[in-house]
Structure formats: C-alpha cells, structure tokens
Design a protein around this nucleic acid. Structure first.
Lengths: 366, 366
DNA sequence: GTTGGCACTCTTTCCTTACGAGTGCTAATA
DNA sequence: TATTAGCACTCGTAAGGAAAGAGTGCCAAC
C-alpha cells in the first residue's frame, strides 16, 4: 500500500512534534499545527492507518502517537526538509575550526568536542584507518648517550623521540644507521618489518649496542599507532539533557558504553559505511550494538587527506533532531575535509546539497 | 569540649556505615556493629551530643544520623584507618602504569582514566605547570620547499613539525638558522622571545623568506603549550553510580562542570596546595567552586621530574570512601613519581605511610 | 471522504491512610 | 553518675483509591 501525500504530511508532523516535545502527539495538536484543513477526527483515521502500516505506535490506548524506527526512517529518507544553517552558525563553526586546526592528532578531540557542543548530543570522532609508512628517517646525535629519532611518515606528519642509552653512542654509527633505515625501511607497513629485516640491518650497521632495535621498535610503534583508528568521545553527559535518559540507570548504561570506547559501527567497516559528503543515519534497532538499539546515530565522514577518511558522529535518542544534526555534521565534515584533505574543496553552500543515506537501501526509493 | 574516645568510635562507625549504605545510620545498627558493649539507648545519648557538637545531623526528626562535613573532616583527620591495598591491587596498578607510561603527554589521559577505573569515581589528572625552555634546535632540510623543525625541550621531550613553504628553501640558510636559534633562543621562556629578538635573528640569518618567524612561532607555541597545565577528566559518568546523583539534574550539573574543565582548585595554587607524598582531602563546603560544595575531592600530587609536580584527583559525593580512595591515589601518585620523576624513588610500601592533610590546619591537632 | 459527538480507556495526580524506623524522654537500675 | 528499658511521638514513605484529563475508537450525520 502506497502512502498518500496527506499521510506523509501527518507523519512528518508527528515526528517533528515528537522531536520537539518528547510527548506522544495527539490528533488535535496535529490538526492545529500541520495546516492541512481537516478536523482531528480525520487525522485520527489517518493516524490509525499509519499505526497499522507500522510507522507509528501508541504507548497505550489513550495516548497520542509516537514514531516507530520505521517511521523515523521514512521521515529521514523522504519527508525531512534539508535544514540550512544560519550564517552565524556556519561562521561559528568555521571560526572554531580555524582556531583549532593544526594537526589532526591534536584536533580529533577538539573536533568531537565541537560536534558535541554544536549539537548538544554526545559526539565521537574517529581518525581514519590508513596505511601509513615511513618516508624518511633522521637520527640526530645529541651527546654520547643520547640521540633523537625523527621519523617522517607518508601522511606527512613527523614523529620524534629522545633516546637515552646506558652505553656510549658512536656518531658514525648513528649516521650509518639512518642511511640504512632510509634505504631499507621506507614504504613498509608495520607488519612488513620483520625481526629478520631488523637483524640483518643490525649486522649491516655493525651495531653491537642495540640501536637498530630501538629505532625499529619506535618505527613499529609509531606506524601501528598511526594505523590504529582512534576514537574520541566527548559530551557524554549531554545525554542527561534528554528526557529519555531521566532514568540514571539507562543513562549510565549508554554513557559507560560510549566512554568505554564502545564501537558505533561494526568494526572494520567504519569508513566504508559512509562515503564522502554523505551523512548516514542509523535509527534504533538499525544499530548493531545492543546498547544502541534504543538510540540513533548520525555519522558524517571527512576527507583526512592521503586518500583516507575519518568519521564524526553524534549519538542521541531515536527522538533526535535529525535534520539539524545532519546539517551541522555535514558542514563540519566538509570544513574538516577542506582543511585536512589534499583534495578538492567542497563547493560553497555544500551543506545544502546534503545527501542523506539510509541504512537499508531497500527502504528508500532511489 | 573534648570529644571522648567512645564518641570517636561512634562517629567513625556512623561515617563508615553511611559510606557503605548511603542511608542515615540508626542507633541500633551502631550498637550491633561497633562492638562497644552498650545499648542503643546509650548510643542515642552520644549521638545527640555529636549532633550538638556539629559532627552529625539528622535529615529529619525520626531518621538516623548523617555525618556533616565537619564530621567527615574529623573522620579523615583522626579516625580513619589507613587502608592498605591488597597485593593484587598494587600489582594491577603497577602493571598498568608500566604498560602505558612512555611520555607524560600521552599518559595524562591514561592516568586519569586509570584513577577513575580504580576508584569508580570521576578522576582528573593535571600536568604540572613548569617553566620549560628550549634546549636544542635542529632543522632538517627535506626538499626545496620543505623542512622539519626538531625542538628538544628542557624537560627532555622532543617536539617536531613539518613545514611546507611556497618558496624554495636554501639549505645553507636552514643550517645558519639552526645555529642562530641554538645560540640565541635556548633557555628562554615563551615571553622572553620578543618580536625584537626574532627580527634581529631574521636579519642576522639574512632570511628573506620568513623562515625565522615560522621557527619562532613553533617555538613559542610549543613552549606555551608545555607550560600550560592541561587537565584531563574521565569517568564523569561514574557519578551516576552514586545514589546522591540519582537526580539527573544534579548529576548533569556536576558532570558538565567537570567536563567543561571546571577547576577543582583555586587556579594558580594547584601544585602549591598539595605537597609531594601527601594526599589532600577537600570536603563539601571546603571546596572553592560552588558546584563542588556538595561533593568531596581527594587529590594527590606526583613528581613529574624537572622539579615540577602534577596532580591526580578524584571527585565524588561527600559520602566517599576516603580511606580507600586516598590509599589508591597515593599509591598511584607514588608510582607515577617513580617512573617520571628524576628524584628518589618512594620506599617500598610507601602507601602505608600515607599522610593525609586536611584543608584547615586549625581543625586537626598537630 | 469528512466531521461532530460521545462513551471508553488508561495514565497521572492527588489525597488519605497505615506503617515503620528511629528518636527523645523518663524512670528504673547498677 | 552512667546506663538501660520502655514508651509515646514524629515524620517520611509506601499503598490504596478516587478524581481528573487527555486521547482514542466508533457511529451516525453531513
């Protein structure tokens, strides 16, 4: 059965009213606000059908209607209007991005904080999983017992570490080692750096002091860290703003799930699930994690340069302001991409052309 | 009026029972548990006097007794038994410290997370405010448009940054600049680096491309960052475990205060308030921040090396397990000091000799 | 297809009552 | 003088019940 235009209007009205008030929506208030010239009784008939179709439900017989996940899904896919951010909002976001943005590592936490502040929901930011390799080694001789490892990565970031040794370092050896590493270890991923390779380098450098393994260990650690996507969550406490979490039990469960680095997306699929410039919405039971079955997640991806993508997302009750949050995240992601990504800058006003993708492709007419 | 030995015993029993159950404590339960051979009626008389003296209060006429902040203070200063950590606990802490500890920057968040997990309260970690200066500069020429700044600080950490320039870099210039910076900028604090100094260096290096100011900017930024104490708070959500925060309003207020980097100690006095090896307890109204007047804070300081100290602290309701938390924090701080500080390692079993200092020196007999 | 009317349902709120934990006081006791 | 038993009293909390109110479903009329 196809859903009529009026039903759509009514459904949208219910969803929006419910998002606003968190109270079941009655026929009367719809008749007043939705602006379609008909009486509460008519609305009631339509509502009853929407319940039958699975878009709405009643908490109990004499209550108003509440959207089901399916109702939200319909709303997000077809009914929701793209929300435009006000000039002040876009300026605010840009200002804060410019203020903070130097290196992704430092900002991943700032980004999640910003997203949380903007939306008033808990927010998370994920760095992209990429395959970073070493591009260049420098070893700086400081004194007889000390040298500095400087490691430039394919992602064009630089990592460094001060190494103290109990033994005296030979300055020639340090230089020899740097050349050997530049020759043999650049372009390798962490798991291509085998003990065998290290060992043969050690011999080639005539290294009896274990310098080679120190440098190699730092390299492996750095690469592993750079390739491990890290998540940062902030603003968990904002859940408490939402009436659905007035029960501390419930709030605590979700908050500790989030704080504990609880994964939002099926691991390994993070970036692949959201393509660039698009915002994905996971509603209630569409989430994989048991703890999120009553909540919704909105995720945008950003281009972190180097052909990798990261994610920013927001978690809230299913009764979430999808439109506003999607718009904000989309703009934020675009701003991040512009600043981090090497690639083409998103066009001005890009946040208006926001593409929202549902979870289940069957459900939205393509 | 001096407080009798029996009153002390009774007060301690009330505090401990209340900490355990979060329910007002009646005379009967004390008579049973406290093991002083007297009847509830006797206890009642004593309790009434303890109320008069200000150590206890009654929520209402027919309820049991609850400690006042003054009662907690007395308990912390004089009555509380030093809690020893079990072998498993100390081993667990040591294990996790060893696992994580490489550089303070990376671990400040880990430390606060660890403290929070151990105590099941929100925890914060503060880096020490110190006066870090530059110790050594290296500039690595990468290609015509790129070089790397490597900056070694007096704290013996190393910071580095990749710099891209629109103009071609002259390799000689890069080296000249490094020498000039090593000669003129080491040992200076951020505010000693004046535009004048930068300008004269620029001329001395014959730098027409603005390299000098790029390096100087990085230096200033790094020093400023290193000297700014950063706080990290985690586990805010654990507040929800406590029955006193079953009201989401209340919980949210405190949590957002904490998340917002709310300051626990009067700013500027952070380290000076807690001396090494000692644990400080701030009970309820002893706190300066309005938001903390109903809560208690337990703080330990650790030696971060380089004559600087940092803090780890825990926030909870006044009904807090002072003894256990103090023991854990103390051990944690000692462990951190041992690993970070240059100084003498704390003696084995140091957590047994824990010194607890109250807020107000007048209140505990010296 | 739409609407007004009306009986019905079910939650929420408020009030009252009963209960019980714990006290304070008094008088007896060691 | 300190302790104890006994008892009336207080006050918060839980339980029960009635009234209110919001919203529905359905029917008959338009």
């Amino acid at each position: 059965m196809e859903i009529s235009a009026r039903k759509k209007k009514i459904l949208a009205a219910v969803v929006e009213e419910y998002i606003r008030t968190a109270e079941p929506v009655g026929s009367k208030s719809i008749a007043q606000t939705a602006g379609l010239g008909c009486s509460p009784a008519t609305i009631r008939n339509e509502l009853a059908e929407l319940v039958n179709m699975g878009y709405l439900e009643q908490p109990h017989t004499s209550a108003g209607r509440v959207p089901t996940p399916m109702g939200y899904r319909m709303y997000v896919n077809e009914l929701m209007e793209q929300q435009k951010l006000s000039l002040e909002e876009t300026e605010e976001i840009n200002r804060r991005l410019n203020q903070k943005l130097q290196q992704l590592d430092d900002t991943i936490s700032d980004v999640s904080r910003l997203a949380s502040q903007l939306t008033d929901y808990p927010a998370l930011a994920l760095t992209a999983q990429s395959s970073v390799t070493a591009k260049r080694f420098d070893l700086i001789y400081v004194d007889a017992n000390t040298f500095i490892i400087v490691l430039m990565l394919s992602s064009n970031s630089v990592k460094s570490k001060l190494v103290h040794l109990p033994l005296s370092v030979d300055q020639n050896m340090v230089q020899r080692l740097a050349s050997l590493f530049n020759a043999g270890f650049t372009g390798l991923t962490a798991d291509q750096i085998t003990p065998l390779l290290i060992h043969s380098t050690e011999r080639a450098a005539d290294d009896t002091m274990g310098l080679t393994s120190v440098v190699a260990a730092f390299l492996i650690e750095t690469l592993t860290e750079a390739n491990t996507p890290t998540a940062f969550i902030s603003g968990e406490n904002r859940l408490l703003n939402q009436p659905e979490f007035k029960d501390p039990e419930k709030a605590h469960k979700l908050m500790s799930y989030l704080s504990g680095g609880g994964y939002i997306l099926p691991s390994g699929q993070e970036e692949s699930m959201v393509s660039a410039g698009e915002v994905r919405v996971l509603i209630g039971p569409e989430n994989v994690a048991e703890e999120l079955k009553d909540s919704s997640v909105i995720i945008a991806s950003y281009d972190a340069g180097d052909n990798t993508r990261g994610l920013i997302g927001v978690v809230g009750p299913t009764r979430m302001d999808y439109s506003a949050v999607a718009a904000k995240l989309s703009f934020l992601a675009a701003g991040l991409s512009k600043r981090l990504g090497g690639g083409e800058a998103p066009p001005e006003g890009m946040h208006n052309k926001l593409i929202i993708k549902g979870d289940d492709p069957n459900e939205h007419g393509g």
